[in-house]
Design a protein around this nucleic acid. Structure first.
Lengths: 251, 251
DNA sequence: CGCCGAATTGACACGGTTCAATTGAGGTGG
DNA sequence: CCACCTCAATTGAACCGTGTCAATTCGGCG
């Protein structure tokens, strides 16, 4: 068969959400259908725009269907800490995610397309008609907490060298889940400035540490892509372990 | 009236849980009753005991009614990172708290008394008969996430001096909520070792920074107590802000 | 009194920061 | 197709916050 005949069908906005949620819990056809239908209308946000601001009322919950954003806190004196990245398939501002109490903003790092999450949110209520959806959404929330804990270990107890390796492993894991990474390459629209504010380091030191990783043939970041050359080394440097898998795949 | 006539009634185990939950959402008499009754039987854990271990199946959910514990991760090479402290009134291992996926252990730092949380957990289901309870438990979870985010800012972007001030302010806030602190003094059974593993510093540096805070008359830690001498200074040093209060007090 | 874990201190080394300048890469208009 | 602009990446040098090691002191307790 020719290349054209195997070409993937044009992606619908909801597809990435379905991939993400199905990776966490098996979805019925009805549930898949619901997600796809509810994710029809997209909004777009240019880089630098806040999807949510710490000083303002939380907005309606969304799912990110393309692009990268971050959850961050800006201090008055200019220092900034990025808590985590929000990737395609990730929810933004779901009720339980502490958006109501914590002083955090969501900032688009690239062009970000989102869809409204209210329908999915309502359908995923516990004891409702969509137990698979409920389960998947619940697990997504648990995973995101696990990534916050990862972040604490990174900046609390790892060296700069280890921090970068650890973060890259996590990004690789998360992007693989939604089909945005192969074993060698993952897209990465992050500037060294953003990396610094994520890992609690200075831009200069990020630069030097990346240089070292490049020199040693472990990985490199070039033109918006991370090239992983020695995944085994990244793994041993970082000690990264993916969150425990959900053994039983029950709805 | 004499001192004896105003003596507080002997505390029941559930009282601290009630205080904690009522601070987050108003509880009906029936809800208070349920909490108190379900919290009758206590378990005790000596310091150094794991209430939950990252290698093992999660145990049944509990509430801490006295003593301090921490949620931590131990690395193979001996490094350790403490994520957060668990104080009287705090839940341990509730379903949504990511205990299932994240590799974290809960370690008793002092003698810890716990009570079973299963009854409260079941009663606090959304759409059940105890909406106030549901609301309070939900908010407790949101607050605990907010404290994780605080921890990321502390170790990512604050200096050693600021980190300690910030942590002390947070402890003061949390302990006040359950009536374990007055404006001057809060109990603090933490060794400098534990503080170091919490704040991503070395024990020696914790010691020196505490000395500085003491010399400057800001605060001091002595015989298991933190004495806050200049709360205004602690506040300006740390930039600590309590989580946003829940404006509407609806059930 | 004597023990033991925790706190304290000094000297020194190093990881990471800061400041300031230079280079590089992608985009735009002439 | 080149000149130009801009923002990000890169580099060097000096500095400093924090870590490490190793010893000493303190404080509570049997």
């Amino acid at each position: 068969m020719s290349a054209t005949s195997t070409a993937v069908k044009r992606e619908r906005p909801g597809d990435v959400i379905v991939r993400r949620l199905s990776a966490l819990c098996e979805l019925t056809d009805a549930e898949t259908e619901l997600v796809l239908k509810s994710a029809a209308r997209q909004h777009t946000h240019p880089p630098g725009q806040f999807l949510q601001h710490e000083e303002e009322e939380p907005t309606a919950p969304k799912y990110i269907v393309s692009g990268w954003a971050c959850r961050q806190h800006a201090m008055e004196d200019g220092r900034r800490q990025i808590y985590t990245f929000l990737l395609p398939g990730d929810p933004v501002g779901l009720h339980r995610s502490a958006s109501t109490v914590a002083r955090t903003s969501i900032l688009a790092l690239t062009d970000v397309r989102t869809v409204d999450a209210r329908e999915i949110d309502a359908a995923s209520a516990p004891g409702g008609d969509y137990p698979g959806l409920h389960c998947a959404v619940e697990r997504a929330a648990q995973e995101s907490t696990a990534f916050l804990l990862n972040q604490i270990v990174r900046i609390g107890r790892l060296t700069a060298y280890e921090r970068i390796a650890h973060l890259v492993m996590e990004l690789h894991y998360r992007l693989s889940m939604v089909g945005h990474a192969n074993s060698q390459t993952i897209p990465c629209p992050l500037t060294q400035d953003v990396l610094a504010d994520t890992l609690g380091l200075s831009t200069v030191h990020i630069n030097r540490t990346l240089k070292q990783l490049r020199r040693e043939g472990v990985m490199e970041i070039r033109s918006g892509k991370i090239r992983i050359q020695r995944e085994d080394m990244l793994e041993s440097i970082s000690g990264f372990e993916p969150p425990k898998t959900f053994f039983e795949f029950r709805r």
